[in-house]
Design a protein around this nucleic acid. Structure first.
Lengths: 236, 236
DNA sequence: GTGTGCGGCATACTGACAGTACGGCGCGGC
DNA sequence: GCCGCGCCGTACTGTCAGTATGCCGCACAC
């Protein structure tokens, strides 16, 4: 039988995480004191340090909480059974929407790389939004919508572009407009790439550009190990 | 005549900035104390506070120092008199190289948005690297290499993609390889877009594409109202 | 060349905050 | 009903950003 003690404990823990999400979103990591977080959760630092090893660990818990929500929302859209292209566009749209949420913006996109370190952040992201984007791209490649592209590199570029877009959109005077135009541009680019791949003309054009080592050797490297660690998302 | 006093003063100031650049790069903003910075510059905090209003102001001075160096390096390449397309590709390559420098990576790309606030950072960037990218794109459009694109939005997407790429490259096991592949992908995409524009076929093709559902409804969902604290990101 | 003002900097202090030590209290098992 | 341990509160410590204040010597006046 579920113990009362355990229930209390989990309740305070989640209260702390929720409080942390709220305050980190509003004032940032450096601008938020542990006393504030504890106070908002109606406990003291003693409780906080009982559940988390320190400020950074608490931040990561908050990060995970936000990411899990977002991930659920994303996969719901992208793992449907529609055509890959449609799911991709819909996923794109959903991700842009998510990026407008202050929690995701500030905690995941802006603060996390600094607080957790770029290394850990990248690692964590590969299990969440970044991973979704990569798998969407993979679907597009496998279904023939995109030609041979280095998966990891392309996914990374796309993810970076989308994050920057989110930041710009949220900071703009007319978010709806900027958001719509952003989506247009990305879809347009994807279509161009698709068309280019379909035309079977991997370029070779008459540019005065550099050496001919272009499209050929790219294909060699398409399959950069999608692997990732098979263990279920390493919780701290 | 140039006063001796003034010379000393400027020397102290630049020593502080240089020290700040070094230490912020190595240990980050939060991980560096003002005493360390002062000590490395062989002065005390008194001198530091004489020249700068606080830690944040010192960071911004360090930021500016790095940006100015980079900007000079970039414009030297992109403001030549070659063909727009060549200058673009060369600029792209140069920027990717710059992104490998730890100073630029950590101070400009990673820490600055958090320390200065995304708002200020964006504003500052528009005078530096981001501005260069935008003007390169503008040249490409005017010279007919790219079709009609929303300049700001596209430049922002490209800048975000490049920043993310830089981060990935620096963190990878084989930076040169990843860097090369990144360049390939971007150039490839640009070529596709160029081809698509040249073909005068803004798509509409017979893909499994979806209906013309309005892109604008995205922003309806911006639930929380951006929540920005306009002050320089709650730092302390 | 002597006085004087002020810019440039050092020293000493204050408040805030992350992290630690330790103790009490109540739930759950016996 | 009693004991132990897990949960949490209280009180303290060290560190660091920022402030208050004063000294020292260069430059300029005369």
């Amino acid at each position: 039988m579920r113990s009362r003690r355990l229930e209390y404990s989990e309740s305070t823990r989640s209260a702390l995480v929720e409080s942390a999400v709220t305050l980190f979103t509003k004032h940032g990591y450096a601008g938020t004191s542990l006393d504030e977080i504890a106070k908002r959760a109606r406990v003291t630092k003693g409780a906080l340090y009982h559940h988390f090893s320190g400020k950074q660990a608490l931040f990561e818990a908050a990060f995970d909480a936000v990411e899990r929500r977002v991930h659920a929302e994303l996969t719901e859209v992208t793992e449907g059974d529609g055509a890959p292209w449609d799911r991709a566009v819909e996923g794109l749209r959903t991700f842009l929407t998510i990026c407008l949420e202050p929690e995701y913006q500030r905690i995941v996109i802006h603060e996390a790389p600094v607080v957790m370190g770029a290394e850990r952040w990248r690692e964590a992201e590969s299990h969440y939004s970044y991973g979704v984007i990569r798998s969407i791209l993979n679907d597009l490649v496998e279904s023939g919508h995109l030609g041979a592209i280095p998966l990891e590199v392309t996914a990374n570029l796309l993810f970076g572009a989308l994050s920057a877009a989110a930041s710009m959109i949220a900071g703009s005077a007319d978010p709806k407009d900027v958001s719509a135009r952003t989506e247009e541009v990305i879809v347009q680019v994807l279509r161009s790439v698709r068309a280019s791949a379909a035309a079977g003309t991997p370029d070779t054009d008459a540019g005065p550009a550099r050496g001919k080592r272009s499209a050929a050797h790219i294909a060699d490297k398409i399959r950069t190990k999608v692997a990732g660690d098979p263990s279920g998302a390493g919780e701290r």
